[in-house]
């Protein structure tokens, strides 16, 4: 139970704004409790910076319980750090050792330009959803919820794809900055459900088109995205989207 505080060296990417070139700055953080989350360690560092008159490090975060998808650090070469199935906010300092040097970078991708320090712009994900990640049903159009039985296996598989939190770790960890895992998770969620059938063809065509326009790279099936995904979204979704896309192309 009793842990000694750790002393850490942090190399953090600092960039004033989108036009700034940016650089790494080294900081020392002392007496870090192993029970702290990674972001709480950043809070402590920021408090230090404020007290010494420096500008604190900007980073994205909100719910701090691993579900909103806002936190986004690339820690020692790993999206969300070294733990499997874990967002940065749920990564605890006990995953590190006293004396460690930790390098923290923002998500790197043309489609995710840096806004400041570790904060990047992920609106391209919203644009992809706006181009087809929905079922076109206006409020009030619905029939009774149980009028449409859905096999449990399909519903469960759809849920697993829908569990994506849109954090962008897949893009960040992919050597090509490909957004295939994100897009395929949404395509799969609806492809697996009867509600999604009416727009199945257009959905995948439009979403892939928007994805390509946003400047993401191409998937080369290295599988990093699946390993780094905090919600462990499966690569099988990418295969499904490829299939959907081929079928849609043949149809249209």
């Amino acid at each position: 139970m009793e842990h000694k505080g750790m002393n850490l060296t942090l190399k953090v990417w600092r960039q004033q704004n989108a036009n700034d070139k940016g650089k790494f700055v080294t900081y020392n953080v002392k007496d870090v409790s192993p029970d702290m989350s990674f972001l709480e360690m950043f809070d402590v560092l920021n408090e230090q910076l404020i007290n010494t008159g420096d500008e604190p490090i900007a980073f994205d975060h909100d719910c701090r319980e691993g579900i909103c998808g806002m936190c986004s650090m690339y820690i020692n070469g790993r999206a969300h750090g070294p733990m499997k199935g874990t967002t940065t906010c749920q990564l605890h300092m006990r995953s590190f050792k006293d004396g460690d040097t930790i390098t923290v970078e923002p998500w790197r991708a043309k489609a995710f330009p840096v806004i400041k320090d570790l904060v990047v712009d992920r609106t391209s994900f919203d644009k992809i959803i706006a181009s087809g990640g929905f079922v076109s049903v206006n409020t009030g159009n619905a029939q009774d919820a149980n009028a449409l039985p859905i096999p449990k296996d399909d519903a469960d598989a759809s849920f697993e794809a829908a569990a994506c939190i849109g954090c962008g770790a897949c893009v960040a960890s992919c050597k090509n900055s490909s957004a295939m895992l994100f897009v395929s998770a949404k395509v799969s969620q609806f492809a697996l459900l009867p509600q999604g059938q009416a727009e199945r063809t257009d959905r995948v065509l439009n979403m892939v088109k928007t994805m390509d326009e946003a400047g993401f790279g191409n998937c080369t099936n290295t599988g990093s995205c699946e390993v780094e995904c905090p919600k462990e979204i499966s690569l099988a979704n990418i295969a499904r989207m490829n299939r959907e896309y081929l079928m849609a192309t043949l149809k249209k």
Binding site: N76, T103, A109, N176, S177, S178, F216, G217, T222
Partner: peptide, 29 residues
């Protein structure tokens, strides 16, 4: 594709941990 993929990340990472998440050969086709 390689050109496009490289362009998709104009600024590279200082620390690249992909060796822990994927095979060398899959990344070096």
């Amino acid at each position: 594709l390689t050109k496009e993929n490289s362009d998709a990340r104009p600024v590279k990472y200082a620390v690249d941990g992909t060796s822990k998440t994927s095979d060398w050969f899959s990344r070096n086709m």
